[in-house]
Design a protein around this nucleic acid. Sequence first.
DNA 1: CGGCCGAGGTATAACGTTGTATCACGTGGC
DNA 2: GCCACGTGATACAACGTTATACCTCGGCCG
Lengths: 336, 336
Amino acid sequence: MAHRPKLSTVAAAAGVSTATVSQVLRGTGRISPQTRDKVLAAVQEVNYLPDGRAAALRSGENREIGLVLHHLANPFNAEVVSGVSDRLERADHLVSVLDSRDDAAREGRNLRALIASMRGGLIWVPASGTDAATLDLLVAQRLPVVTFLHRVAERFDHVGLRNAAALGRAVDHLVELGHRRIAYLGGTSPRAPRAERIAGYAAALAAHDLGAPLVLPCEDSKAGGLAAMLELRNAHPEVTAIVCNGDMVALGACLGLHRRGETPGGEVSVIGFDDVADAALATPALTTLSIAPYELGQHLAERLLARLADPAAAPVHQDLDASLVLRDTTAPPLPR
Amino acid sequence: MAHRPKLSTVAAAAGVSTATVSQVLRGTGRISPQTRDKVLAAVQEVNYLPDGRAAALRSGENREIGLVLHHLANPFNAEVVSGVSDRLERADHLVSVLDSRDDAAREGRNLRALIASMRGGLIWVPASGTDAATLDLLVAQRLPVVTFLHRVAERFDHVGLRNAAALGRAVDHLVELGHRRIAYLGGTSPRAPRAERIAGYAAALAAHDLGAPLVLPCEDSKAGGLAAMLELRNAHPEVTAIVCNGDMVALGACLGLHRRGETPGGEVSVIGFDDVADAALATPALTTLSIAPYELGQHLAERLLARLADPAAAPVHQDLDASLVLRDTTAPPLPR
DNA sequence: CGGCCGAGGTATAACGTTGTATCACGTGGC
DNA sequence: GCCACGTGATACAACGTTATACCTCGGCCG
């Protein structure tokens, strides 16, 4: 055999028509037990597996879900992916993951390719510079879409976070501990979530009458957090507490303190955002705004399933709370 | 418009036949500049995007590549994914990632779904218990496959590591520093790479006449490494150095030492495997067996592209070296 | 002026599957 | 002995593309 086995290969092997084979495989129609066995044996024999494209083309069904996010290397995202996959695989869908690396051009290519292969739906963490043409395309193709974190269009389902409120909680906690100079660390993207977090941070500062906000942008990674912390200690030694754009930045900031011979929760208190698995494991364990990534992934999956079940329903927009988890990187400022 | 725009929609809008639209889009055949412009305008107008399934079905072409690995949450894998994607996207392929979570059943489902959607090829890090039926299927479907790390069949292209030699280098280094009791930490899977590493470790011990190997299996994660290190310090306090099954385990082991008030490179020297980005960032920075994950990913992609270019060529098997990168978690044992 | 040729476009048959309509064939009732 | 009927299997048309063969028409050469 030189080629991929197809329906007709099986049909020939079993001595029946292709229609019969199809019925057996799909469990539809009326087939006698003996032909049924004959067909199944033939399927095994030639190692047949249906061509999903042809099947999908004919039947209009589609059980493939695309998951496009902006940074796979971040463990928070990896945990979200797990949640999404587990839930959707239970519903007999296949999830394939694409990483846009927060690059709008790459994201555009990915989305186009995804639509071209006609997925059944899309869970999407939009990158910073997503362009209107891509959005138009998604709308025109009538693809069920759930966006996460960054809302790009009213007509897509969306799950977001109450970023400003979360940051308020973080700042409040630091103020209660006695901190007066509190900086914000991390992020470079102009995306909405970061802006909301910074706004929440600034509003909380204002509420406590703590002066002007101090924002140090940096790459959302440990390396970025590390570098930013070193700079902060040099340029703004009066700062005794920071809130970070994500746990990776916060953990990196902690590394920066260690490298200077200082300790998180000592010279500088640190609060993260996300609650990745490493946050609880670090020494000292990281105080952070927790959003349970695995459960969140499952939640996103449920949203998409609901949309698939009723494509005509009105778009659902939802915002989740992040709760402050107190661990060991926050403490009263050192006396001086 | 109630439906997804298709070729005939565009054709109607442009006042030409579907064949002409197809030719314009594909750049084949002879078309006058004016009809060409007319068609392109119509494509924009209706937001048309071709149905890749139908196109692939008809043309037999396929530009989708599946990437199946066993643990996406490990940053090493995430970096490999980046390398693979970048290279394949440059060659105009779409890469979609599936995570088997080292579960043979899930892996089997993923692979079947992948074949069903008729990818153009597969890069695969096989899970522990991959079954023969799945292998038969892959072979019968004549899918170009490159396996990584764990070789499961002679007839697939394969890229592996010289695990035993690498472990030999690690043990040699520790012995030179003066260590006599060296343990192996991590891994639970019966997969070949781990067995080779343990064999290399045991052989090196024997070569230096250091007595029986001491292997502590644990989950390949920071949490696993942490727990294993705590156990090691209790049960085998005479051990002064460990080699780990991966950087996550090694970094977890370092956390375990910190938690006991001890330091890596002090009470216990630690060597990792992989050289993830965090290894260089940790304090102290992790000595590890490095395999440059991003470049490795690109290499895997090249292998697959070569296979796609010449499906008939004999299978290529290749093993790469891991080099020992000396950082701060290895030092002579403390005097006692 | 007829035939030839090339440029520009179209009709049509696939690709591998599924769903519907249809058909062959006993079997049982009257 | 004939018709109605249910059972089991098949023929055939679609799904949205692409590739090939074909058609038409004007211009140009012999």
